[in-house]
Every structure is written in structure tokens, then in C-alpha cells.
């Protein structure tokens, strides 16, 4: 009885007793969630347009951050380094289209997926070759300070990151749903041959998508890199994006956003209120368990396109 009370009632009583603290936990969860969304978004973009899971997305985050830091270490000012990094990601997109996607056109998805694994190793090695493998500090001039609003402790950098992330995400959502290019992108995602037959230029679409995914990776890399340093483990945040994708659905931009927010808030709330009951560290596994539950009951995710099979 007591155990049941502790798990099922106790935490909610705590939430009710200190609503301001609860709000602080939720807001901090949302801020982290935006960062997850950002990483997941890169996956969704490429999955939509090439129908393949891009294993290299995590490394693209690392590679972009490394390039930015590397340039800044050579005395390039921040704004110029940002522009140059964007340019590098666009060039990378062209190279990927020419050297990887074009030769593999009309192949099975699993083959493209294997190719992205190859791309992962290449980018990892290439990044280290260019910029070295030391942990680097990334300072983009936004202070990592906390301040108090109405009794809640908020972090300035987190707010900044969330604002940037939210703007990017909103822009991309409109881009996909409302513009003709967005429509062409979705068309390519659905059927390559049909897209070709109505004259949608596959190559252009791929370059656009991989460029955008590269830029999203860069933003994610900057945000995470500035928090925890630019190092190899940055490429592992991609793992955190997987549960986000399972929640939101691989094909949905709004899904990636909401999935990220749910996981961000969920793991913070679980950690603070249920953590003490099981000895903490819920944050590390909460997202994966949630993903597992979703796989069992709603495999297409919250917003994924319904899987309709005709037999």
C-alpha cells in the first residue's frame, strides 16, 4: 500500500504543493526538448526525401560543430565562421548527392542505409583529420547564466537555444507543408519514379534536403557543443533522437517537435518526482522505455503517416 502510494499519488501531491517548482521543471524540460527536436528534425528531413534513415545525422552534428570551432580557433570571427560552416555543409550535400545518392538511385532502402553508415565513418575520420580529436570549447558569446523569474530558476543559454530552435522548426514546418518545393519534397519521398515522370528534378531536391539537414545539424551542434564541449560524444546525441522519432513518427516535422518536447518534459519530471523513489538516473532511460511503449501500441508514432496495407 505504502509503495503504491509513493509511486502513484505521492509525486502528484508534491507537484500540487509546489506549483512554481513544478512549472520550473516543466519549462526546463521543454527547453531540453527543443534541443532534442532539433536533432530529430535532421533525421525527418532526410527520411522524408530519400526514404532512408540517415545514420550519419549524429556525425553531421559533430562535423558541423567541429568545423565551426576549428575555424574560430584559426581566428575567424563568429559570423564569418557561421557562414563558412553553412557553405561547408552545402558543399557536403552536393558531394553526397553526386558520390553516394546518384550511383545508388532506385536501390533498396537498406542499401542507402548502409551507405549512410559508411558516410558516418568517413565524416568522423575526416573531421578528426581536419580539426584534431581534442575536446574543444565552443563560445558563441551567449552567457550560460541562470536567473530568476517569479521564483523559477531559468537558464539564459537554454532560453536562447530554445528560441533559435523554435524559429528554425517553425520555418521548416511551413516550408514543408505550404510551399511548392515542400510538396515536391514530399512527392519525392513517396515515389521516385512518379516524381521523375512529372518532372521533379530529383538531384536538386536531394541537394536541398541534405543542405537543410546539414544546417539543422549545425545549429544542433552549436547548441549542444556550447553546453557540453565539442567532442566525439556529440555524435551520440543522435541516439536521443531515436525515441523522439519513434514518438513523433519518422515522416512528420510537427511530430519531431512534439516528440522532442514530450521526451524533454517527461524525463525531467520523471527524474525529479519519481527519481528519488528508484534511486535516480531515470533521465538516462526514460526516453527509451517510452519509445518501447509506443512501438508496442502505436508503431507509426503520434503523427506518422498511417500504415495502410491492402491484402
Amino acid at each position: 500500500m505504502q509503495v503504491l502510494y509513493a509511486f502513484l499519488v505521492g509525486p502528484f501531491v508534491q507537484m500540487g504543493q509546489a506549483p512554481v517548482f513544478f512549472a520550473e521543471v516543466v519549462i526546463n524540460g521543454l527547453l531540453t526538448g527543443v534541443m532534442y527536436s532539433l536533432v530529430a528534425l535532421g533525421f525527418v528531413l532526410i527520411y522524408k526525401a530519400s526514404g532512408t534513415f540517415n545514420f550519419a545525422q549524429g556525425v553531421m552534428v559533430l562535423f558541423a560543430a567541429l568545423t565551426l570551432v576549428g575555424l574560430m580557433e584559426h581566428g575567424v570571427p563568429v559570423w564569418l565562421a557561421l557562414i563558412l560552416t553553412v557553405a561547408v555543409m552545402v558543399v557536403l550535400a552536393f558531394a553526397i548527392e553526386r558520390l553516394m545518392l546518384r550511383p545508388l538511385i532506385n536501390q533498396e532502402q537498406i542499401i542507402l542505409f548502409m551507405a549512410t553508415i559508411g558516410l558516418t565513418f568517413f565524416l568522423e575520420g575526416f573531421g578528426e583529420l581536419l580539426w584534431g580529436s581534442n575536446v574543444k570549447r565552443l563560445d558563441i558569446g551567449v552567457p550560460d547564466r541562470s536567473f530568476e523569474v517569479g521564483g523559477m530558476l531559468l537558464n539564459q543559454f537554454d532560453l536562447f537555444a530554445a528560441a533559435i530552435g523554435a524559429a528554425l522548426v517553425a520555418g521548416l514546418a511551413v516550408f514543408f507543408q505550404k510551399t511548392p518545393i515542400g510538396r515536391a519534397l514530399r512527392a519525392v519521398a513517396d515515389d521516385h519514379q512518379a516524381a521523375l515522370s512529372v518532372g521533379i528534378p530529383l538531384k536538386t531536391i536531394w541537394v536541398v534536403v541534405w543542405s537543410v539537414a546539414g544546417i539543422v545539424a549545425m545549429v544542433a551542434g552549436i547548441m549542444w557543443g556550447a553546453k557540453s564541449g565539442v567532442q566525439f560524444s556529440l555524435s551520440l546525441i543522435a541516439l536521443k533522437a531515436l525515441p523522439v522519432l519513434i514518438l513523433g513518427g519518422f515522416t512528420s516535422v510537427p511530430g519531431a517537435i512534439i516528440g522532442g518536447l514530450i521526451i524533454g518534459v517527461g524525463e525531467k519530471v520523471a527524474e525529479v518526482y519519481w527519481g528519488p523513489l528508484v534511486g535516480g538516473a531515470i533521465e538516462n532511460w526514460f526516453a527509451y522505455v517510452l519509445a518501447l511503449v509506443f512501438l508496442l501500441f502505436r508503431p507509426q508514432g503520434l503523427f506518422g503517416e498511417r500504415i495502410i496495407e491492402r491484402v
Binding site: F175, T179, P180, I181, R183, A184, R186, A187, A189, D190, D191, Q193, A194, A195, S197, V198, G199, I200, T204, V208, T251, E305
Partner: peptide, 29 residues
């Protein structure tokens, strides 16, 4: 049939207009 299955009838037909759209990528974006 090779339709864009996830898209509406209207959107499928609109993709057919793709080549008739004259405004460049930037405007469209």
C-alpha cells in the same frame, strides 16, 4: 499505380503542375 500515397488528391495533382511553375526556388521557399 505510382501516386504520392501520403498526399491528398489535390496535392498529387498540384505536383503535375511542377514544371509549369516559373518562379525560382528562392521565391518558392
Amino acid at each position: 499505380i505510382a501516386l504520392f500515397r501520403g498526399m491528398s488528391t489535390l496535392d498529387n495533382l498540384m505536383t503535375g503542375r511542377n514544371l509549369k511553375m516559373k518562379k525560382n526556388l528562392l521565391w518558392q521557399a
